[in-house]
């Protein structure tokens, strides 16, 4: 039987959640026995060419391209997991949500105390994705099946959850793995 495929992506995240995934260390060898990585920054596969069992999403949606990717994941994956607080709630990037977009851009490119921008332009190339008026948690854009909290979730949490899901067993996360204060 072909191994189930797992896709991952980082939307509006810091890649910390992907780092945490890599923190499973040598268990990654066990993992690739269980699964095959499909579209993911880990192997640099850019496009879905096959149906995936699981999609791991890091980060929320801050721009139109994030939305596009997330919807693509929803189309191509059976199960979507929001990994980390950014995916679940917007996280740190969502701190801009109370500030109008125009003000954010002006602060970042024109008025901020450390800005050096003699041309006074706000980047506007059509290649650059357009920012949304706020940062959205993934489950406000598409349906998400599971949430793994943490910033980032510890490697063990990701590992336990994946293994449970792939072996069709109930996930058993000890208190230490889901306690964050």
């Amino acid at each position: 039987m072909a191994k189930p495929k797992v896709a991952t992506t980082s939307l509006c995240g810091c890649f910390g959640c992907h780092m945490s995934l890599l923190d499973i260390d040598d268990r990654i060898l066990k993992l690739v026995e269980l699964i095959e990585f499909h579209k993911s920054p880990i192997n640099d596969i850019k496009k879905f060419t096959a149906r995936c069992a699981i999609g791991l999403i890091e980060g929320g949606c801050c721009n139109d391209e994030n939305v596009h990717v997330l919807q693509d994941f929803r189309k191509n994956c059976d199960i979507l997991i929001s990994v980390g607080d950014c995916a679940i709630m917007g996280g740190i990037p969502a701190m801009r949500n109370t500030i109008p977009l125009k003000e954010c851009l002006e602060e970042a490119y024109l008025n901020g105390p450390t800005v050096y921008n003699p041309s006074g332009q706000i980047p506007n190339d059509p290649e650059i994705p357009l920012l949304l008026k706020q940062v959205y948690p993934c489950n406000e854009v598409v349906k998400i099946d599971y949430h793994l909290p943490g910033c980032p979730p510890p490697a063990d949490t990701i590992w336990e959850a994946l293994v449970a899901l792939l072996t069709d067993k109930p996930v058993d996360l000890p208190y230490e793995l889901i306690k964050y204060d």
Partner: peptide, 19 residues
């Protein structure tokens, strides 16, 4: 699998105007 309450054109409207 999409959330019908999410409206991309509305969410990106401000940025389109600025850009």
């Amino acid at each position: 699998g999409l959330q019908p309450s999410f409206d991309l054109s509305e969410a990106v409207g401000d940025a389109e105007q600025i850009a």
